[in-house]
Amino acid sequence: MIVDPEVPPQDARVLRQSRDVLLRMRQGWTPGLLPRFSGPHYWMLAAFAPAACFGLLLSLGMMSAAIVMLLLAVPLALLPLLGRGGGGGDGSGAEASERAAFAQLRWYEGRYVLVDDLDVPAAALLVRARRAIATVTGSRVNADGLLDDVRNAVMLPEQEWEIARLLAKLSALRGTYAEAGAPGFEAVARALRDSEAAVLARVEALERYAAGVADAERAYVTQVRIEELRSRAHQYEDLAAEAGADAFAVPELERLAAEAARLARALRRPPGNAGETGE
């Protein structure tokens, strides 16, 4: 779900998590008028209400045995209706969450877009826009402050919302007025094409921005690696110095290898030539 960035963050978070509630609302679902009582709450009410009525009736001189029995029986009679005396905390918590989601969805109606409502072309454009935005916001150059991260934090969510809002309208109108060759619908078809072209221009502008950021990201990463290599240059120099410290090491090793080769050739000769090992 895409939410208008002007919606307070806490409310926006509730809206984004309320897709299932919204779908049920569209099918006619509404939460109950009163929340169910959990077990402890119910028994607190069941104990307090009769006691309050008992005190009131006693002060008015209207107390009788029949009334006392009635006051004791009422909580038990209402037990199946008010949460059955033990409606667990999980159920009441879920109902409270659904009730809050219902209220927020009603209050902010028109300020969120359910992605499921978009037709295939509109959904594809939204995917492209969101991918471009993710490229920018997830880049290292943005995180390290090389871009105008403050402006991006404001401008990019606004662009995402405007694109989603326009695509939702476009999808709804396309569903109502399908493009047709009939003269009466030509103006509508042209308006739909022009609207889609305008949204496409926004998406392509975002993609160009994201491509530029990607280029900057590659250059920045390369620069960081070069700086890391420069910072370790002395380590490479020390290694080279250590590896070439003994100027006689390589010639000596080559001489020993030659001696070993001559010895190997001598050992492979027939026994009659064994005395020529000193060749």
Rank of each mutant, 00 (worst) to 15 (best):
M1L: 06
E6C: 00
P8S: 02
D11S: 14
L15N: 15
L15I: 15
D20G: 07
D20S: 12
L23C: 03
L23S: 13
R24C: 02
M25W: 08
M25I: 09
R26C: 07
T30M: 12
G32E: 12
L33K: 13
P40E: 13
L45V: 13
A46V: 04
A49P: 05
A49F: 11
P50A: 15
A51V: 10
C53S: 15
F54M: 14
L56K: 10
L57W: 15
L58M: 07
L60Y: 05
G61F: 07
S64F: 00
S64A: 01
V68Q: 09
V68L: 13
L71D: 00
P75D: 08
P80I: 15
L82Y: 10
G83D: 06
R84D: 10
G89S: 08
S92F: 03
A94E: 09
A96H: 08
S97M: 06
E109C: 11
L118H: 08
D119H: 08
D119L: 05
V120C: 01
V120L: 12
A124W: 02
L125E: 14
R130L: 07
V136A: 00
T137F: 03
T137H: 02
G138N: 08
S139R: 04
S139L: 00
S139F: 00
N142V: 01
D144P: 06
G145S: 04
L146A: 09
L147P: 10
D149T: 12
V150P: 00
V150H: 00
A153P: 08
A153L: 05
M155I: 00
M155H: 12
L156N: 04
Q159V: 00
E160V: 05
E162M: 06
E162N: 05
A168N: 05
K169E: 14
K169R: 13
K169Q: 11
L170H: 11
S171D: 07
R174M: 11
G175Q: 11
A178Y: 00
E179A: 12
G181R: 12
F185Q: 13
A189R: 09
L192Q: 15
L192C: 05
D194F: 04
A197G: 03
L200H: 03
A201I: 00
R202T: 04
V203R: 06
A210G: 06
V213Q: 05
V213H: 01
E217L: 05
Y220G: 03
Q223I: 06
V224A: 13
I226Q: 10
E228G: 10
S231H: 08
Q235A: 10
E237V: 13
D238N: 14
L239K: 15
A240C: 02
G244E: 10
G244P: 01
A245P: 01
L253K: 09
A261F: 14
A261W: 15
R265H: 09
R265K: 15
L267I: 02
R268D: 12
R268C: 03
P270T: 00
P271R: 11
G272S: 12
A274T: 06
G275Y: 14
T277M: 12
G278I: 01
E279H: 12
